[in-house]
Amino acid sequence: MLGEGIIKGLAETGRNFLGSYFEPDRLVTVQYPEERLPAPETARTFPFLVYDGDDWQKGLRCVACQICEKECPPQCIYIVKDITKKPDYIGKLQFQPKVFDIDLSVCMSCQICVEVCPFDAIKMDVEFELSTTDRFGRLLLHKAELAKPNEYYHKIHPAEAAEVDARLAAEKAKALAKTQADAAGKSVSPKPALKPLAPASG
């Protein structure tokens, strides 16, 4: 009969209305600033630059290869190469960025920069309370604000960071073995090897 569905619907919404007062489980709202849900392991917001050790200038993993700059779909990364080099985690001399800017208001959190970086230098952050009234001061982040220690990376993405660390350590060990083998093979005519460049701690 006409109108039956309406009565049923009214009963349903009425039940919801009353139920929301008596059964707190019904209310799924999280009262955000006071209550928070833990972020899932895979949460991501914007990229940051990882550095090893204590000195962010020295330990920055980025070698200014500019792959991420080229790949970033909305083109929100801006890199200027420095002319001076610094040793990377294996000990090889590499370039370093003089300027590394990311415009958070343009970034779309796609994580492509992370995927393409061959040096595990750029990772995704989980910080999301970034709203500000200062468009250029607080949303265009420079190298110094982007650099965050490896420990921080471990804290926000433990599993992923452990995997990266293991891989880097293995590469380092391999490189070390190779240099040693090379050194042993060429011991007849010793040359100043890469020895003095002490590998950065991992």
Partner: peptide, 10 residues
């Protein structure tokens, strides 16, 4: 308020 409660919101 009422619409919220009907949709199980605050």
């Amino acid at each position: 308020k009422g619409l919220g409660r009907i949709q199980n919101r605050y």
